[in-house]
Design a protein around this nucleic acid. Structure first.
Lengths: 253, 253
DNA sequence: AAGTGGTCTAGACCACGCG
DNA sequence: GCGTGGTCTAGACCACTTT
């Protein structure tokens, strides 16, 4: 009869909403602009606030929006490309890298890290905490695990912890011949301490980059870096990365 | 008085719940085991189902759980390492790669891709659709954009579309000298078509890998590959990747 | 104090996979 | 048909930032 139902799949409301909002962002908003608040937006689209929030969450996940409690929802700038794997490998702390050493302690690494470093179950390693800034914003928090055997000449004169110690460990690392490195990227959620540094709420989506540094025929150090997934595009390879990012679903022939 | 409130921050319920569940997964469950259903779990912990779901979502994001509608929630195996950036660069479709060419059409690429390829606004390019399987599971869906100028000798005899055409395009690509490549990784959400191939719901979190291939002094092809973020750990670099993955928050001194 | 996003509840119905 | 996870609602209160 009068049923003109061609699409047998009822698209979820939040999905449709996300598409509508996405197009509105492209057409009617500019970077940094603040959107109406969630209650108003929900009313305007005739949905419950929870549904509206589901759409906003997706857009935030895709780096289109930025939400801050007590402030509002703003249109996010395009993600910034962050180089994480240069063609020439260098030790952390080499001159010119974008990291800032914050602290250093001695502690027993997580089991997974200990396995890679082939340290004993209760063996402590130097653990350097660093932070990476880009365009004035924190984009990554890192823990660099360095076994004592990789920095044998580390002076006992330095303080056993603190920023000075961190720089000393990095300095000693440069003396080893770096034979190679490899990295892995996976999705994770920010731990409470990393979230604080990254200015996000705990549980925020992050890209976890685990890097092994090889020297003297073994794994001489391991880095676990946590990048903000909403603002970062990680680049690897010969040059500075690719300018391609999100785009509307237009894929007509 | 009797107020022993040292922690002024009331941890959200779902966050605490996630921690409890995470520890339970480590201690009492093995890979593949199915959890009680959401209604029972919520009742057991004395929270609303929505709150319980918020905790499960996080655990799924971290690759600890797998949820399937109509089936249930199961304990996920550790993420598999998937090599995406080998030390020696090779063209897509080289012998031995893990991809399966599925289809090929001619279409106008998204604006961002067109910009990198330096094609005209309405210029069509060969678009190869491929799928990557690992351990019997689909892990990635890819669109490879190849301008006509990169495959000048492509025979007009072949069908204008379909798997045979896809293979023909890849075969012609091998003839160019590959001068280099670079990649970028960012978080995204699965489009409807990719979600179908990846056996996930639309909007599922994915890692989008954009790769530029250089030949003859220009960008000769661009690949946009969509990896399942829940099951994959992308590896770059000299060797096969790192065995480090999630671990409990234990970080005592 | 006012306004924002973040958390939480207790329901309801729907889409899907399986026996 | 039944049980599962997925979607949606209409509220409430909380934590945070700004005024």
């Amino acid at each position: 009869m009068g049923t003109t139902q061609l699409e047998t799949v009822p698209e979820p409301k939040y999905w449709h909403l996300k598409t509508v909002l996405s197009e509105a962002l492209d057409a009617e908003f500019s970077v940094g602009e603040i959107l109406p608040n969630e209650r108003d937006l929900a009313a305007r689209f005739g949905v419950a606030r929870a549904t509206l929030r589901q759409a906003l969450e997706q857009l935030e996940l895709e780096g289109r929006l930025q939400r801050r409690r007590g402030v509002g929802t703003t249109v996010a700038p395009p993600r910034m490309g962050v180089a994480v794997g240069a063609a020439e490998h260098v030790w952390p702390g080499a001159v010119g890298d974008a990291w800032k050493a914050a602290d250093c302690t001695q502690l027993v690494p997580p089991a997974a890290v200990a396995g890679v470093l082939e340290t004993g179950a209760d063996e402590t390693v130097h653990t350097v905490r660093r932070m990476r800034m880009t365009h004035g914003q924190p984009v990554a928090a890192e823990l660099l695990y360095v076994p004592a055997s990789s920095v044998p000449d580390l002076s006992a004169i330095e303080a056993p912890s603190g920023p000075a110690r961190a720089r000393a460990v990095l300095r000693e690392l440069q003396r080893l011949g770096l034979e190679g490195q490899d990295s892995a990227v996976e999705l994770g959620s920010a731990r409470a301490d990393d979230a604080k540094v990254l200015d996000r709420l705990p549980g925020a989506p992050v890209l976890v980059v685990t890097t092994r540094f090889f020297a003297e025929g073994r794994t001489a150090a391991v880095s676990v870096a946590t990048y903000r997934a909403d603002t970062c595009r990680l680049t690897f390879g010969d040059s500075g990365g690719v300018e391609v990012h999100h785009d509307p679903e237009r894929r007509a022939s």
